[in-house]
Design a protein around this nucleic acid. Structure first.
Lengths: 386, 386
DNA sequence: ATGTAGGCGCTACGCCGACAA
DNA sequence: TTGTCGGCGTAGCGCCTACAT
């Protein structure tokens, strides 16, 4: 597995990364959490940082940095997306000035003309092709000529480029009873080349110039297992911390990889977002909040929860860190998958609950949606029933 | 790519690792070279250690250690062999005692009933099976019943286990005109599962209990590219050095991976071997020596060379290191592949040339074998003409 | 609207000697 | 002795519709 040199197509990269992943702009101020970086290593190696690794007392739990460079990448073997960021630590004196100059948040938007489908057993079997959801095909593929007389079928050849600029050719046909959109010839080569399995997702984009792009998103269960044959997980944890420590001590730049789909949480946070969360939010035990998660079809959904505790995640190694300092409980019973600890900047506190939740007198009609944590669709890409 | 937990079959592991790879025994004293470890990282990431990485002035260029534990492993994805070694640095006071107590060298032997064949284009194509060299089949496979009357062919089913204890089934048949040994059914599944290409090697062993084992050895050109998506190469170099530095400073154990086929040289050397080379060998510019290399068919061959210089490889970072301190030239013009720098313990100095080289009067019969650097077969596994 | 299965043509996989190096 | 090829039989890939959900 190897990465690439240059930065890849941003639109496609963000589509593969998912709607929640935002990359801070070059030149902006960010907060780097070595603790979170270590968690990414732990997730990749499936081994927590050992107690044996040395401590770096001079390394603070967060470094305010200038984001000197960002490039977007994808693993050549797996197409896993990641970024390479070069950070320059900012000295304390400079740091104070910056509190006064918050930067303007910049939203990273998902492409509009795109769709994402989780592959079924039929899609990935050798028996046939790929069934395209109707609305998806109409939204991103060039229109077919439906005026053909039966038994002739409208069909065309599609060419799409992946993150590595590799071309993939597909035969797109509209047939079957009832009629449907299918990719036939070329599809199985794509599936076997990318080693896709049922549960993985494929996404198509039509960009500004009308060109088709396609990407993949592997199911979460396929853990991105690391080659343990080069470095022990301990050495990796040490490498991450020692590199940050050295950069902080010498005010020199250092480089990290951020792997949005492997890492439990972002550990390079825009400074404005951090400051806003720290200084403008009063949190307390018992407080209720919402937090955004990604849905299966690349959508966004908010879940409701309650703060059950506030305190350091690792008081010995990382005292006074804001990293995952909130213990939380989730309203829904299906919340077994969600983290039990989150950071301040990840949540939306319900400071104005009465503007969001209907008055209690409406209970009969809609049983307390806000408090019960009823889900709320945020974008609704490819909603089933409009 | 992930490794395994327990230590694998030693005989098969060593066959895959090659005849030159020896693993020091648990409990013995070894010398660890952080410089060499860094070279392994550089070979894996294809990036040298950057000038930006911090220096560790307190980390000596070599650490004398107790080899606390060794386990043998193979990458689950690629079957690449590697070892995991746990080392305990020995303090200086203890170190001096050990100079007086050299340990007995222990030879690691290659299995006797084994063969190794480099795959041809025909072996790996989808067109057919695997052609087994005659002597190889007779040496390691159960004998066939050759008494069958034509056109019937003697055949049997072979079952062999790989390093991961996975079973592979093959149909072994003796047919064709002229007659030959072939693996047919089951072979192509093996080739595609292991993603073997022409130039890669396959080896079979019959162990003590008569069970068949098989392993693979990929061609050198297929560089074991690392996933750069987790750690930058700089962080890896730092991690390796910082881990060793911390262990040396605290006299605590540390763990490394040694990857014999990816690493340019062994960087954990038996102490006796190191001492023997340092104290019992007088080297000087112009001195001639021999050095063992691996042949294509898992054999060993000596090449002749001359020492052209002596000095530190990296005088700034690693002064007074013995790592690759000898600059050498090779006799044969085909020596472009061989290292231009070697370490003392890798060579055999020609201190008694007249016991090895025939007298000059024999030139007419054998034209100066020693001085011309004529090759000398050391084991002769599967020699063409006996 | 779309997942799965039966039907079936046809490609290419894989088993066989015939050569030749 | 063994690498490659032309020859074939056949498994399974992959395109189609039918049917169910």
């Amino acid at each position: 597995m190897t990465g690439e040199q240059r930065s890849l197509n941003s639109e496609l990269w963000h589509a593969c990364a998912g709607p929640l992943v935002s990359v801070p702009p070059v030149g902006s101020r960010v907060v780097y959490f070595p603790q979170g970086h270590s968690e990414q290593v732990a997730a990749s190696t499936q081994k927590e940082a050992d107690v044996h690794i040395p401590s770096y007392p001079s390394l603070p739990p967060r470094l305010i940095c200038l984001l000197d460079n960002v490039t977007l990448h994808a693993d050549v073997e797996t197409d896993e997306v990641y970024t390479r960021m070069t950070l320059i630590p900012v000295s304390q004196s400079q740091e104070k000035d910056m509190v006064m100059t918050p930067e303007v948040p910049r939203e990273t938007k998902q492409p509009t003309d795109f769709f994402c489908k989780t592959l079924t057993a039929s899609d990935t079997s050798t028996h046939g092709g790929f069934s395209i959801p109707r609305r998806a095909a109409e939204k991103v593929f060039p229109p077919l000529d439906y005026s053909q007389q039966p038994p002739a079928h409208p069909a065309q050849e599609l060419v799409a480029r992946d993150l590595h600029d590799q071309e993939w050719h597909f035969r797109h046909i509209y047939r079957g009873q009832p009629r449907r959109h299918l990719l036939t010839t070329g599809w199985s080569i794509f599936v076997s080349s990318k080693r896709l399995q049922a549960g993985d997702s494929v996404l198509f984009i039509r960009d500004d110039k009308g060109q088709l792009l396609l990407g993949i998103r592997r199911a979460n269960r396929q853990q991105t297992a690391m080659p343990s044959s080069v470095l022990t997980s301990d050495s990796m944890h040490i490498g991450v911390l020692a590199a940050a420590n050295h950069a902080a001590a010498t005010n020199s730049r250092f480089t990290i990889f951020y792997n949005p789909r492997a890492s439990p949480s972002e550990f390079v946070i825009p400074l404005w977002k951090y400051h806003k969360a720290i200084y403008q939010t009063q949190v307390s035990v018992g407080m209720r909040f919402r937090m955004v998660f990604e849905t299966e079809e690349s959508g966004m959904r908010r879940y409701m929860g309650t703060i059950t505790g506030i305190g350091d995640l690792d008081p010995l190694r990382w005292p006074n860190s804001h990293w995952r300092s909130l213990k939380v409980g989730w309203d829904e019973s299906t919340a077994g998958e969600r983290q039990r600890r989150v950071s301040l900047w990840e949540i939306e506190p319900l400071t104005t609950p009465f503007l969001i939740c209907p008055p209690l007198t409406l209970r009969a009609k809609r049983p307390r949606p806000g408090l019960r944590g009823e889900d709320e669709d945020l974008d609704g890409s490819l909603r089933k029933s409009p």
